Simulated scan of single mutants.
Amino acid sequence: MTKICQSLNEFSRELIYPLFPIFITKVLGFSILQLGVIEGASEAASILTKRAIERKSEKETHKVLLPLLTLLVSSITRPLFAFFEGIFPISLIRFADKLEGNKSMIAKLLGPLAAFLLLPYLDFNYKKLFLITVIPGAIVAVLIYISIRELPRSVKVDKESEFLQGKKSKTLILPKIFFSLGNPSGSFLMLRAQELGSTTSVLPILWLITNSFLILSSRYGGKTKNKSKTFLIGIFLRSIAYISFTFIPFDSHLWLPFALYGTAMGLTEIPGGKSYFESKRDKTNRIPPYLPPLAEGLTPIIANSFIGFLWNWWSSFLAFMICAGLNLIALGLLFLLTPSDNS
């Protein structure tokens, strides 16, 4: 039942994801810098909140209760986009929107496809599309209510969980920071597509292409034995994707950079790639335990705000080229700092 709720929540998120930046900039009239601040602040807050919930859930008897509540908040607040226009409430709703994530492959495909099919019937009214998310949100609320009622009164918690074990691992702080700084929100990709002349109805299809290649590449990455090499290839492809977004001549060729971007995300978000930065043990305890999550929480707001600033005051060309450069720096640092993995 929890997986059903997660899939419905992911479907609801993917339904509005490719259209959210257009709604913010074209309908509400926010600048691209303000969009970057909204995306960065909401992403940073959601990361830090999820880390706190993970830590708290290790100490509580109801390990499932807190994740279910965050899933509920994420699902039922999404329709509120249709009722608020200020930057502060929009940021709060966006924070709740990102609070619970899921890797449901079907939802990642059905969400953009549903947006593409529904938009003409809704007269391309974004607020009406946001209101449709009430339906999956209501279903999630009912299922979570049933799940909470059926939870056992106590759950045995292992003394040393995966989260606690993660504290012992060494984090490659510097390459991870450059890696995160070079990975702003996908909202900027949607804005670039519209800048090149793509219509609103095409944007969900472009995001569908992204998710399709993400699914295919993640399946390959999950089966390969050399996770580190796959992760490094993903970083390189992501830098190429940002360069292609810069030099793509016509909107008819936009499927290619979106396909590259999806492939790169699939290779860098596989389980092996996700734990790559924590692959070495820290026997000296020189890295404070609070530093990795703090860096992970701060880099999204810096990355998105900085890219929004560059785009707003200079051009998208400079913004995407800097993203590509940051990824190449992260790639070079990983080669230098982990020579044993390069073979």
Rank of each mutant, 00 (worst) to 15 (best):
I4R: 08
L8A: 03
N9T: 03
N9V: 04
E10F: 00
S12H: 00
S12G: 07
Y17W: 01
T25R: 06
G29F: 09
F30Y: 03
I32C: 10
G36W: 07
I38M: 14
I38F: 05
G40D: 05
S42D: 08
K56Q: 03
K56M: 15
V64F: 10
L65Y: 09
L69P: 04
P79C: 13
F83Q: 11
F83W: 12
F88A: 12
S91P: 02
R94Q: 03
G101V: 00
G101Y: 00
G101A: 04
N102M: 05
I106E: 11
G111D: 07
P112R: 02
L113S: 06
L113V: 13
F116H: 09
L119V: 13
L119G: 04
Y126P: 01
K128S: 09
K128D: 13
I132H: 10
T133H: 05
T133F: 03
I135S: 08
I139G: 04
A141V: 06
L143P: 03
I144D: 10
P152F: 02
R153E: 08
V155G: 03
D158C: 03
K168P: 02
K168I: 02
K168Q: 11
K170I: 13
T171E: 12
T171Q: 13
T171L: 14
I173E: 10
F178A: 09
S180C: 13
S187H: 11
S187M: 10
M190N: 12
M190F: 11
L191R: 01
G197M: 12
T199C: 09
T200L: 15
S201F: 14
I205E: 08
L208C: 14
L208K: 07
I209F: 14
I209E: 09
T210A: 15
T210E: 15
T210C: 15
F213R: 07
N226M: 00
K229I: 00
K229M: 00
I233P: 02
I248V: 15
F250Q: 13
S252C: 08
A259K: 01
A259C: 09
Y261G: 07
A264N: 02
T268M: 11
T268K: 04
I270Q: 09
G272S: 06
G273D: 05
F277G: 04
S279N: 11
I287N: 07
Y290S: 07
P300Q: 07
I301Q: 10
I302Q: 05
S305G: 06
F306D: 04
F306A: 12
I307G: 02
I307R: 01
G308H: 01
F309W: 13
L310W: 05
N312Y: 12
G325Q: 04
G325M: 10
L326V: 11
L326K: 02
A330G: 01
L333H: 07
P339L: 11
D341H: 08
S343L: 13
